[in-house]
Protein backbone atom coordinates (compact mmCIF):
# COMPACT_ATOMS: atom_id res chain seq x y z
CA UNK A 1 0.00 0.00 0.00
CA UNK A 2 2.95 2.26 0.57
CA UNK A 3 3.91 1.70 -3.06
CA UNK A 4 0.45 2.68 -4.27
CA UNK A 5 0.51 5.88 -2.26
CA UNK A 6 3.95 6.66 -3.62
CA UNK A 7 2.76 5.98 -7.19
CA UNK A 8 -0.32 8.16 -6.79
CA UNK A 9 1.85 10.92 -5.31
CA UNK A 10 4.24 10.77 -8.25
CA UNK A 11 1.35 10.75 -10.73
CA UNK A 12 -0.29 13.83 -9.21
CA UNK A 13 2.98 15.70 -9.06
CA UNK A 14 3.68 14.92 -12.75
CA UNK A 15 0.43 16.58 -13.94
CA UNK A 16 1.36 19.71 -15.90
CA UNK A 17 -1.85 21.55 -15.00
CA UNK A 18 -1.47 20.70 -11.30
CA UNK A 19 2.01 22.25 -11.37
CA UNK A 20 0.63 25.28 -13.18
CA UNK A 21 -1.93 25.81 -10.40
CA UNK A 22 0.72 25.31 -7.71
CA UNK A 23 -1.14 22.33 -6.22
CA UNK A 24 0.54 20.59 -3.30
CA UNK A 25 -0.44 17.11 -2.20
CA UNK A 26 -0.24 17.22 1.58
CA UNK A 27 -1.81 13.89 2.55
CA UNK A 28 -2.70 10.72 0.67
CA UNK A 29 -3.58 7.10 1.42
CA UNK A 30 -6.42 4.58 1.76
CA UNK A 31 -8.79 6.40 -0.56
CA UNK A 32 -8.26 9.85 0.98
CA UNK A 33 -6.30 12.80 -0.38
CA UNK A 34 -5.67 16.39 0.69
CA UNK A 35 -4.44 19.01 -1.77
CA UNK A 36 -3.83 22.73 -1.31
CA UNK A 37 -3.94 25.53 -3.88
CA UNK A 38 -2.23 28.82 -2.97
CA UNK A 39 -3.93 32.12 -3.81
CA UNK A 40 -2.70 33.51 -7.12
CA UNK A 41 -3.89 36.65 -8.92
CA UNK A 42 -3.84 34.83 -12.27
CA UNK A 43 -6.75 32.66 -11.02
CA UNK A 44 -9.06 35.59 -10.24
CA UNK A 45 -12.56 35.21 -11.65
CA UNK A 46 -14.09 38.41 -10.31
CA UNK A 47 -11.76 41.37 -10.84
CA UNK A 48 -13.85 43.57 -8.51
CA UNK A 49 -13.37 41.40 -5.45
CA UNK A 50 -10.27 39.36 -6.31
CA UNK A 51 -12.18 36.12 -5.69
CA UNK A 52 -10.75 32.99 -7.36
CA UNK A 53 -12.69 31.67 -10.36
CA UNK A 54 -14.93 28.65 -9.71
CA UNK A 55 -13.17 26.87 -12.57
CA UNK A 56 -9.87 26.84 -10.65
CA UNK A 57 -11.71 25.35 -7.67
CA UNK A 58 -13.14 22.71 -10.06
CA UNK A 59 -9.66 21.81 -11.28
CA UNK A 60 -8.47 21.49 -7.67
CA UNK A 61 -11.49 19.34 -6.72
CA UNK A 62 -11.09 17.10 -9.78
CA UNK A 63 -7.39 16.52 -9.10
CA UNK A 64 -8.02 15.77 -5.43
CA UNK A 65 -10.86 13.33 -6.21
CA UNK A 66 -8.67 11.52 -8.76
CA UNK A 67 -5.85 11.26 -6.21
CA UNK A 68 -8.25 9.79 -3.64
CA UNK A 69 -9.36 7.13 -6.14
CA UNK A 70 -5.80 6.18 -7.08
CA UNK A 71 -4.81 5.83 -3.45
CA UNK A 72 -7.68 3.42 -2.67
CA UNK A 73 -6.38 -0.06 -1.75
CA UNK A 74 -8.69 -1.66 -4.36
CA UNK A 75 -7.76 0.66 -7.26
CA UNK A 76 -5.37 -1.09 -9.66
CA UNK A 77 -4.12 2.01 -11.51
CA UNK A 78 -5.26 5.32 -12.90
CA UNK A 79 -8.66 6.94 -13.18
CA UNK A 80 -10.70 9.31 -15.34
CA UNK A 81 -13.61 11.53 -14.35
CA UNK A 82 -17.02 10.26 -15.48
CA UNK A 83 -19.02 12.99 -13.82
CA UNK A 84 -18.38 15.70 -11.28
CA UNK A 85 -20.83 18.01 -9.55
CA UNK A 86 -19.65 21.03 -7.61
CA UNK A 87 -21.75 23.11 -5.23
CA UNK A 88 -20.41 26.57 -4.48
CA UNK A 89 -21.41 27.62 -0.95
CA UNK A 90 -19.55 30.91 -0.74
CA UNK A 91 -16.72 32.89 -2.32
CA UNK A 92 -13.25 31.86 -1.13
CA UNK A 93 -11.63 34.72 0.79
CA UNK A 94 -9.09 36.47 -1.48
CA UNK A 95 -5.49 35.90 -0.40
CA UNK A 96 -6.15 32.60 1.35
CA UNK A 97 -5.00 29.11 0.36
CA UNK A 98 -7.78 26.69 -0.55
CA UNK A 99 -7.54 23.17 0.90
CA UNK A 100 -9.51 20.21 -0.44
CA UNK A 101 -10.10 16.86 1.15
CA UNK A 102 -11.48 14.09 -1.05
CA UNK A 103 -12.69 10.68 0.07
CA UNK A 104 -13.31 7.71 -2.18
CA UNK A 105 -16.21 6.20 -0.19
CA UNK A 106 -17.06 3.32 -2.51
CA UNK A 107 -15.22 1.49 -5.26
CA UNK A 108 -16.31 -1.36 -7.55
CA UNK A 109 -14.53 -3.09 -10.44
CA UNK A 110 -15.28 -0.22 -12.84
CA UNK A 111 -16.45 2.78 -10.88
CA UNK A 112 -15.27 4.76 -7.86
CA UNK A 113 -17.49 7.22 -5.97
CA UNK A 114 -15.91 10.27 -4.41
CA UNK A 115 -16.92 13.19 -2.19
CA UNK A 116 -14.83 16.29 -1.56
CA UNK A 117 -14.91 19.48 0.50
CA UNK A 118 -12.95 22.69 -0.09
CA UNK A 119 -12.24 25.22 2.67
CA UNK A 120 -10.10 28.32 3.15
CA UNK A 121 -8.72 29.61 6.50
CA UNK A 122 -12.23 29.39 7.96
CA UNK A 123 -12.43 25.59 7.94
CA UNK A 124 -15.86 25.62 9.60
CA UNK A 125 -17.61 27.05 6.56
CA UNK A 126 -16.94 25.10 3.35
CA UNK A 127 -16.27 27.10 0.17
CA UNK A 128 -17.49 24.26 -2.03
CA UNK A 129 -18.36 20.59 -1.98
CA UNK A 130 -18.13 18.07 -4.81
CA UNK A 131 -19.34 14.60 -5.58
CA UNK A 132 -18.39 12.54 -8.55
CA UNK A 133 -18.05 9.17 -10.25
CA UNK A 134 -14.65 8.11 -11.58
CA UNK A 135 -13.58 5.22 -13.78
CA UNK A 136 -11.31 2.50 -12.39
CA UNK A 137 -8.52 1.82 -14.89
CA UNK A 138 -6.12 -1.13 -14.94
CA UNK A 139 -3.05 0.95 -15.82
CA UNK A 140 -2.09 4.63 -15.98
Amino acid sequence: MGDKTQLARQFIQAIPHAQELGLVLTEIGDGMAKITMPYDTKLIGDPKTGVIHGGAVSALMDTCCGAAVMSHPLAPGGTATIDLRIDYMRAATPGQTITTKATCHHISRNVAFVRAVAVDDDAERPVATASGAFSVEAGF
Binding site: I15, P16, A18, G54, G55, S58, A59, T63, T81, L84
Partner: peptide
Protein backbone atom coordinates in the same frame (compact mmCIF):
# COMPACT_ATOMS: atom_id res chain seq x y z
CA UNK B 1 -6.63 17.71 -21.18
CA UNK B 2 -7.15 17.95 -17.40
CA UNK B 3 -10.74 17.22 -16.37
CA UNK B 4 -10.64 20.32 -14.20
CA UNK B 5 -9.63 22.43 -17.21
CA UNK B 6 -12.57 20.99 -19.16
CA UNK B 7 -14.91 21.85 -16.27
CA UNK B 8 -13.43 25.35 -16.04
CA UNK B 9 -13.72 25.90 -19.80
CA UNK B 10 -17.40 24.91 -19.72
CA UNK B 11 -18.04 27.09 -16.68
CA UNK B 12 -16.30 30.10 -18.20
Amino acid sequence: IHGGVTAAFLEV
